[in-house]
Design a protein around this nucleic acid. Sequence first.
DNA 1: CTGTTAGCGCCTTCAG
DNA 2: CTGAAGGCGCTAACAG
Lengths: 344, 344
Amino acid sequence: MGKATIRDVAKAAKVGIGTVSRVLNNSPKVSLATRMRVLGVIQNLDFHPNNTARLLSRKIRIHNIGVITPPFTNYYAFADRLRGVQRGLAQTPTDYELTLFSVSSLAHFDDQLALILQVRNVEGLLIIDMDLTEMQVDALRQAGIPFAGLNHFRGRSWTCIGTDNIEGGQLATEFLINLGHTRIAYVGDDFPPEYGWPTGEERCAGYKSTLRKHGIEPLDELIRLGPYDYQSAKTRTFALLDLPEPPTAIFAMSDFLALGCIAAIRQRGLRVPEDISVIGYDNLELSFHTGLTTVSQHLELSGELGIKYILSMHGGAESEPAAAPSLPPQSVIVRYTTQSISAA
Amino acid sequence: MGKATIRDVAKAAKVGIGTVSRVLNNSPKVSLATRMRVLGVIQNLDFHPNNTARLLSRKIRIHNIGVITPPFTNYYAFADRLRGVQRGLAQTPTDYELTLFSVSSLAHFDDQLALILQVRNVEGLLIIDMDLTEMQVDALRQAGIPFAGLNHFRGRSWTCIGTDNIEGGQLATEFLINLGHTRIAYVGDDFPPEYGWPTGEERCAGYKSTLRKHGIEPLDELIRLGPYDYQSAKTRTFALLDLPEPPTAIFAMSDFLALGCIAAIRQRGLRVPEDISVIGYDNLELSFHTGLTTVSQHLELSGELGIKYILSMHGGAESEPAAAPSLPPQSVIVRYTTQSISAA
DNA sequence: CTGTTAGCGCCTTCAG
DNA sequence: CTGAAGGCGCTAACAG
């Protein structure tokens, strides 16, 4: 049992509680004999000192801010954001530590959040890619924990640092249309609205509205939703290629899926962008290396601004909620997976 | 001042300490009037409850294991390892949290470690890509903190989970030689031995010994060491290409640098692998997407094994130091950046 | 060298 | 509804 306390050890070893503390802290003023004895008892009782008590006693205060992350379908997006967080933290001379909470499902998220609220072991919280209910928002505010979301949700009452997904979807689609494409497919996730991650839906909405704006009617056969993973993106791309009239361009809702699309296209012996253009969304660092054309949503910067925002709220001026930082506008980063249709 | 205590608040608000605690915890049994008053005082005094004390009082024990990481030159290698750590943690039903310590320099590393040792706020430590002095090892052991390195150092007395770099260097070189290459360059870092990161040096040693084994004398002009960054790798590659007789293949000491090499080659209008083969080292997930031929060192798995190892040491059997887990052998992952010289 | 005594800052009964 | 008292588990003076 981890129940053993320093007093139990003292009793069992027939020494004073102070002595036990001394061996625990490696004080030189303990005879070898008693030290050995105490050490033995510690082993037997499987005693582990309670660090919380130690900190209290020593008047050491530890501050940490939590980062809570969703299931890792797209790890590099998280990694890019986390990198920003770390950089922001490093730039601010504080002694905050970073605690990583990873979550394996939505239900688990609620549990984790409840736990955090209970334990309050965190003086700030960065929430990556997850939405909060109004109740959770209230609870967080009640608890006085500064928090921010790293992503974008429309019309939320709490601070989210992210770029608008509808707008991003429009950008990508507009870009493809300007290149002369009209038969443009969309490959995205199929999370239902209840799932609480409207990102894909919004990007798709931007795609559709832009198509219509240019007089193109969105076609069901060109909109392929499904699980958010690489393999599945490939599968859906194959289906697209098998169409009587395949698309000339694909807008994938994330760089991660875009890579799946590209892999599928190449696997069929077709070329990107000569035969089909592909644009992603995220601008991961990875995408620089793969030469992917994409919409930059400033992942890393969002992390940096997020942590700085959180930190700024601890500066006493908690009454004056610091202005939510905002990201630069999104833009299409043109690389080598898209080209004008006339060039084909 | 964060010096204000609950007692100060009580005094200033002319209430009992218990009442303050109640408003802090949102207890319903506080009249609105006094609650407001107390809240006001809390604001004035800029009082922040001491979470350590709260935890102690509530008998909540928090366990966390620390992950300490080097300056981020190669973030994705860290990310891949971290992913393994998180996965391993998720597979083990415990309530451990992960605390991330990021370090900006070697000196900073020593400080951080000293701090961790002082505060002992961590019940396990995973050390990524950093070496320990014997003193640090002893201190960690004294403190009873289970720890492991994620990487490989030769002949250390502590547990490192990583694959042998000399061997890996040999593998890569052997692979290139089997492809018919004889004029093989090496692009790596120039960290001096004192820096405490022998990784590159070892990979280079493997490279040289394998060359010699095949009767090829390593040439200084083909060994290009320098800063560990993408741009610099490009620069060195340009120098290589400017040689009267350029190499037909490059062994880059990491995938990250390999991508720099490839970028340089392509920028010169040459093709990979048709004109020059490039092999990296790491097998980042990124490398799957870029089609890079590389040596797999099981980054993600190392994280997973590392955390499981640490956790296993808390299972009471601390006396019996759990066997250090070992990684599967390294191997060359053949993709699309290398080819036989005769095919050129 | 070692036992004892105070707290660390907060939560939680327990009487009012 | 509210104040006072005890204790969480440990460290840090103190006397021996």
